[in-house]
């Protein structure tokens, strides 16, 4: 392996591991792509690098510029890493109810945190950041939810890696957040083989968004609409915190320490495996478990942890 010149050269090219021992159907293989090995610890490093380099190419980013971004954590952490290396300042609008590890990592990489109400979830962070961007035209607002450079990161890197390493994939399953992973990888894989099904997994929005006043506070990422997300997805399923934690624990049982959203995606894959006759399901593991240790997800009583998880953003 050649020596990397910069930590940014270590983003991407993540490994896939066969976890079919957890498949409920002997005719269905389950493969897990581990994104936790990225230098900033999540799949969002790819997005962060793409957002910033795209803005540089367009001439929007001048040396020493200040960036603004709403994020429940991972994109913020990725941007903070890339910004630190490239000499930009970063302000992250972060919901109050994310795990303390996410907050600490942002500070470690030198980002400034602007807190948005936890009761409004990511929607509240998006709203606050959009408002701040209007008030501060001197800040560069990359806006992952509407920036084509987000899915582009996955069209150019994640998708081709999956096709290279796992060409017999029949189903692709990932969590739905900004929709960047699903849109980018999904459209790349469908172009290679239109029979591949794209399944989205999402957490229940229920208790997390008690602060929303009416349905018009709802939010659909513009990239989802612009890239034809509704046509692209074959299925969208909700996985609650208890299932997510249980499947994270089962993964730990075979030696894989991944974040809670990985457990959610895996629960979706198991559901898929029960419904199809045979196939190869590729599941994205967005990050490792490190940032969720404080939630007690692996060590405390499952019902206590589940209640805690209902109030914490882990996607």
């Amino acid at each position: 392996m050649p020596v990397a010149k910069s930590v940014l050269d270590l983003i991407g090219n993540t490994p896939v591991v066969d976890i079919s021992t957890l498949s409920p159907n002997p005719e269905v293989k389950i493969m897990l792509k581990l994104e936790g090995g990225n230098p900033g610890g999540s799949i969002k490093d790819r997005v962060a690098l793409s957002l910033i380099e795209d803005a540089e190419e367009q001439g929007i980013l001048k040396p020493g510029a200040t960036l603004l971004e709403p994020s429940s954590g991972n994109t913020g952490i990725g941007l903070a890493l890339v910004a630190k290396v490239k000499g930009y300042h970063l302000k992250v609008v972060l919901p109050g109810n994310v795990s303390p590890e996410r907050r600490q990592l942002l500070l470690i990489y030198g980002a400034e945190i602007i807190e948005s109400p936890g009761s409004e979830g990511s929607n509240g962070a998006v709203r606050m950041a959009t408002q701040l961007a209007k008030e501060h035209p001197e800040w560069v607002f990359l806006y992952q939810y509407a920036n084509p450079a987000n899915p582009k990161a996955h069209i150019l890197t994640t998708g081709p890696e999956i096709w290279r390493d796992c060409p017999d994939v029949t189903h692709f399953i990932a969590g739905l957040g900004t929709s960047g992973t699903l849109i980018g990888v999904g459209s790349y894989l469908k172009e290679k083989n239109p029979d591949i099904e794209i399944w989205a997994v999402e957490p229940p929005s229920g208790e997390m968004v008690d602060g929303l006043r009416n349905l018009d506070d709802g939010y659909i990422p513009p990239i989802f609409t612009e890239f034809g997300g509704e046509k692209l997805l074959d299925r969208k399923t909700v996985v609650g915190p208890k299932d997510s934690i249980e499947w994270s624990r089962r993964l730990a049982g075979i030696g894989i320490f991944a974040g809670i959203s990985t457990g959610a995606a895996l629960a979706g894959a198991v559901k898929c495996a029960r419904q199809i006759e045979k196939g190869v399901i590729l599941v994205i593991s967005p990050d490792g478990g490190w940032k969720y240790l404080s939630t007690g997800a692996w060590t405390d009583d499952i019902d206590v942890v589940t209640e805690r998880a209902k109030k914490t953003i882990y996607f």
Partner: peptide
């Protein structure tokens, strides 16, 4: 049947 508002992640 569950009805839920559309929310973002990320």
């Amino acid at each position: 049947i569950s009805i839920l508002p559309a929310v973002a992640g990320g």
